[in-house]
């Protein structure tokens, strides 16, 4: 495999993790989080700061990134826990922008670290032991393992009675409340879990690239993740993964359709127009996505009463 292909699959895995996080928030719970990239950024920055400036072991930095994402989710959900989803959309997109503005304007310790300079020299895990020509494969394996773990977590959460409450909140928060469910608490928990998963994605991202700056975390990233979930099928976590693969293929595949150097920017714009049109078409003509949500069957009692 060429190094580029490994790179691409690794990035798809990281986006898959982001997509799973949103799948839990939107697909399962109906939360319109337009600030998904905020989680990603918090996870990436916390883990990067921990492992470079603070000199923590990488594992600890990862854990901090995950917890950072969860904490950010809770903070976002606290003021809007009881409000309608249109307010969620506005507040979450604003919160993610706020995080970017803060990191964009804040130096981290020394004058050329943080702010628009970003963070360099983010260490790769187990570089000492596994370093070498095959390191890319090891990192890919790490991402794949994390992706699988996240999938299992999201799937387990969704199938638990807690997940049933989340689904009810998606359908009608009023019914959920009338049946005695604490909707606000459940939403906050969802944002914590979704934030932790996306935070993990961010940590994987920063240690993969070794360098991050605020331009990696534009609101556009959020849109890509949404395209993945909508296309794949909201409410089906496997669909979210399928969506991640397709959007990644589309996004990177169109890079090679030759526009030449001078038209690179035109190509980039048209690529986004394409994805925008795709998401609109899916909403209009395939609203349940390519892998629609599946019903859980409990079976009907037979005549004998069992």
């Amino acid at each position: 495999m060429s190094a580029f292909l490994v790179y691409l699959i690794t990035m798809t895995g990281i986006y898959g993790i982001m997509s799973l996080s949103l799948s839990l928030q939107y697909g399962q719970t109906g939360l319109v989080n337009l600030g998904q990239v905020g989680f990603f950024m918090v996870g990436a920055y916390v883990s990067a700061i921990g492992s470079t400036i603070l000199g923590w072991p990488i594992a600890l930095a990862f854990v901090a990134g995950v917890l950072g994402g969860a904490l950010f989710g809770v903070l976002m959900a606290l003021p809007i826990g009881n409000l309608r989803q249109d307010y969620w959309a506005i507040v979450t997109i604003a919160a993610a922008e706020l995080v970017r503005v803060i990191f964009l304007n804040t130096n981290l310790g020394s004058p050329y670290v943080g702010a628009s300079y970003g963070i360099t020299g983010i260490p790769s895990p187990l570089q000492g032991v596994l370093g070498g020509p095959y390191y890319g494969y090891y990192y890919l394996a790490l991402v794949a393992a994390c992706l699988l773990g996240c999938y299992l977590v999201v799937q387990w959460v969704s199938r638990s009675p807690f997940g049933r409450v989340l689904k009810a909140i998606r359908e009608s928060d009023e019914v959920a409340q009338a049946l005695g469910k604490n909707v606000r608490a459940a939403r906050i928990w969802t944002m914590a879990i979704g934030g932790a998963i996306a935070g993990l994605g961010g940590a994987l991202f920063s240690h993969f690239l070794g360098f991050i700056d605020p331009t990696y975390f534009m609101p556009l990233e959020t849109f890509l993740v949404w395209a993945m979930v909508i296309l794949g099928g909201a409410g089906n976590h496997l669909g979210a993964l399928a969506g991640a693969i397709i959007i990644q293929l589309l996004y990177n595949g169109t890079r090679f359709i030759g526009f030449g150097e001078e038209y690179a920017s035109l190509g980039a714009s048209l690529r986004m127009v394409l994805i925008g049109v795709l998401i609109i078409l899916v909403i209009l003509y395939l609203p349940r996505g390519i892998l629609p949500e599946r019903r859980r069957r409990y079976g009907v009692r037979d005549a004998a009463g069992r």
Partner: peptide, 21 residues
């Protein structure tokens, strides 16, 4: 009633004070 939940899921949702919630 939550529309995109099955009838049985709706029923199970109704039970109060579930540990798993």
């Amino acid at each position: 009633n939550p529309r995109r939940m099955t009838v049985m899921e709706n029923m199970l949702l109704g039970a109060a004070r579930q540990t798993g919630e």
